[in-house]
């Protein structure tokens, strides 16, 4: 859990508490059912599958696709508005502190392994994949590939989302013999994706968030402008690079404190020897600050 009182320890506890509270329908795990209360109309900020037995809210990407694929709606304004609101306030702080699948990857990365990698070969291209998935699998395919009655499918949820497999599929299938009898090729495919990502999480920090997550892609677009942001005091920063060395996503924080990839874990703030990196909703004036 990290040193008592350390930022990493605090972040882990916040992640666990948020996941536990927003997935608090414990009876669902025992019965192999899901929560059906009206609170599920409200989206949760992270990639939290609404078919998780405990989920008390909806996944914003799942809700977005549900409306987009509906034959009576042309666009998903409700979920899009939610994503923009959360992005404008918090940016990818959600990924670092409030996403249950992010928590899973964090915990796996802590398992000691032979050698941790800073990046994978082809890192720059791989990072663009999440935008391809956002545009292709989350927006275009559910809108354009329709069945005979004009209904689309949630392509990202169906073919890619590992959070749905881990938080929804595995606990439901474990508790329900009826679902066990329906297992087939699609489930094997999704378990394969999940297994690869969890195995990669041993080697590289947050591979799903870095390369594939469409929710992170949306929130990342807001990092440079969100109300919650990082600032580097140019009077204090010596350009030593300690922040980049400490950043598990290899971001040069002293140059780009609000990079789209940053999940706001705060590791750079702990590592900065001069305390030049600050974060919050406060926007000082009259200081020489690096804000981009």
């Amino acid at each position: 859990m990290g040193r008592p009182g350390s930022r990493r320890g605090l972040r882990t506890w916040v992640q666990i508490a948020f996941a536990a509270v927003t997935n608090g329908y414990a009876a669902g795990f025992a019965r192999g059912t899901i929560f059906q209360g009206k609170s599920k109309v409200i989206c949760l900020p992270g990639l939290n599958c609404y078919s998780c037995p405990g989920a008390l809210g909806a996944c914003p990407i799942g809700a977005f696709q549900a409306v987009l694929a509906d034959r009576n709606h042309k666009f998903a304004f409700y979920a899009a508005g939610f994503l923009i609101l959360v992005g404008a306030v918090l940016g990818r702080f959600v990924c670092g502190w409030l996403c249950p699948f992010g928590l899973v990857q964090d915990l796996i990365y802590r398992i000691p392994f032979v050698k941790k990698l800073r990046r994978l070969p082809g890192e720059r291209g791989l990072r663009l994949l999440k935008y391809v998935i956002l545009v292709g699998f989350v927006i275009l395919l559910p809108m354009t590939v329709l069945d005979i009655v004009g209904q689309g499918q949630p392509w990202f949820c169906k073919y890619i989302c590992p959070s749905g497999t881990l938080l929804g599929g595995l606990p439901l299938i474990a508790a329900s013999p009826a679902l066990q009898s329906a297992l087939g090729g699609l489930f094997a495919w999704k378990v394969g994706i999940l297994a690869v990502l969890l195995a990669l999480s041993l080697l590289v920090y947050r591979p799903f968030c870095r390369y594939l997550c469409p929710l992170g892609a949306v929130y990342g677009l807001f990092n440079p402008i969100s109300l919650y942001r990082y600032r580097v005091d140019a009077h204090k920063c010596t350009g030593c690079g300690a922040c980049q060395k400490a950043c598990k996503l290899d971001i040069p924080v002293h140059k780009t404190p609000n990079a789209a990839l940053c999940i706001r874990c705060g590791g750079c703030k702990d590592a900065c020897p001069t305390g030049a990196i600050r974060s919050g909703f406060r926007w000082e004036t009259g200081e020489k600050l690096q804000n981009t």
Binding site: I34, A58, C157, G169, L172
Partner: peptide, 24 residues
Amino acid sequence: GLWQGEHQVVLRKVITICMECIGL
């Protein structure tokens, strides 16, 4: 979205198990 009743579509969808999401 609320004015167009999208929240009703979301609620209808999310209170049943999403077979696509869980891989079935």
